[in-house]
């Protein structure tokens, strides 16, 4: 059937084709879009969101959801600033502290969900609130910057070390001098790691099985609770890495930054469902989803679209991708071969 094959093709490659068309269009319409610098800029703009989105993907795979990632990232941001500026610790210690904090939050989320049977959305919503509040307590609600005035009247002695700022600001040479920022490299490394883990190891396969039918997965011998906890810990760790990179880029512990991180990264993971007709969470799709949003925003910005239209554009892509995933795939399976279940 011709129409079936067309639908099949559209579901598989439609989103990637759309991405290619967009790139071609912007290359022609916006001068300067098709350049290495612009590409590096786009990658940089999506790197942190993308890292968080990869963590969300892991929780989506086990049919969970982590609402706390945004606040884990901002907590990591504040914690790293606090550790270096006020406690005067080294960059390395600050990074270890933040990652440990992310893992711990993930562990607590996981335990709340599997041991205390709190539904995932509610547990992580609670954790989100808790962290948003907690990160403000040590500084009495103020942002942290080098030399800030402390409550006891003295000034903070510590600074963001150069090694830490390197994480957010250094650019590697690639064809051009100082082209690829460190966060982009970290984003790509994490994307490859999670892609391999979910797609090509038995642990990833079992996590998909748990997300699809938890009871069946436990009856083939999978330790369902452990895998769920691991998924939330991965999510916590990636979120804290995102927070560290944000802190390193900003160079201060800004209480108000990172507001959009949660929504943007969840959107990227959900847009990822539509890539290659996967109709399920997957690392490759998530990375493409994040890029898609970045490319569209960059292109529109270069064509002088005002900044306040950005969220509207993101929302429109998300809705389109979801329709694409759920409506078209549903039609495909309904019109496809034998649905004859007796």
């Amino acid at each position: 059937m011709k129409s079936d094959r067309f639908l099949d093709f559209a579901i598989r490659y439609g989103f990637l084709l759309l991405l290619v068309v967009l790139i071609l269009y912007f290359s022609v319409a916006a001068s300067g879009f098709a350049s290495p610098r612009s590409a590096a800029f786009i990658l940089q703009s999506v790197a942190i969101t993308g890292i968080l989105a990869l963590g969300v993907t892991c929780t989506l795979v086990v049919d969970g959801f982590d609402l706390s990632i945004g606040s884990v990232a901002t907590s990591a941001l504040m914690l790293s600033a606090y550790a270096m500026v006020i406690l005067e610790l080294s960059a390395f210690t600050a990074v270890v502290l933040c990652i440990g904090m992310g893992a711990l939050v993930g562990l607590i989320n996981g335990l709340l969900i599997v041991k205390f049977r709190v539904p995932d959305l509610l547990a992580t919503l609670g954790m989100m609130f808790l962290l948003i509040g907690l990160q403000r307590i040590p500084t009495q609600g103020n942002s942290i910057s080098a030399g800030m005035r402390l409550p006891d009247g003295s000034n903070a002695e510590g600074t963001f070390s150069a090694a830490f700022l390197w994480l957010g600001r250094h650019r590697f040479d690639l064809f051009l001098e100082k082209l690829v920022p460190v966060p982009v490299v970290i984003f790509l490394l994490i994307a490859i790691a999670i892609w391999v883990f979910l797609g090509f190891t038995r642990h990833g396969r079992l996590m998909y099985a748990i997300g699809s039918n938890e009871r069946a997965a436990s009856l083939v011998g999978a330790n369902v609770n452990r895998y769920k906890i691991v998924a939330y810990m991965i999510s916590g760790v990636t979120a804290s890495i995102g927070g560290i990179l944000l802190a390193a880029r900003l160079g201060r512990g800004d209480i108000a930054s990172g507001n959009n991180l949660l929504l943007d990264s969840v959107a990227a993971a959900l847009i990822g469902f539509a890539v290659l007709g996967a109709a399920r969470p997957n690392a490759f799709g998530t990375a493409i989803g994040a890029l898609f949003v970045g490319i569209l925003l960059q292109g529109l910005t270069m064509m002088n679209a005002p900044y306040y239209t950005q969220d509207f554009v993101k929302g429109a892509i998300l809705v389109a991708a979801l329709v694409f995933t759920f409506y078209l795939s549903a039609r495909q399976s309904a019109g496809g071969k034998s649905q004859t279940k007796t």
Binding site: F200, T201, R202, R205, A209, N213, R215, A217
Partner: peptide, 29 residues
């Protein structure tokens, strides 16, 4: 339906599910 089938998996992945370890080389399936 409740206890055994992984509805989103194909036949191969459903069959091999309990013994994934034996299909793994160097950590990869």
């Amino acid at each position: 339906g409740t206890n055994a089938v992984i509805p989103t998996f194909n036949i191969t992945d459903n069959i091999s599910l309990p013994f994934l370890r034996s299909f793994t080389r160097l950590g990869l399936l």
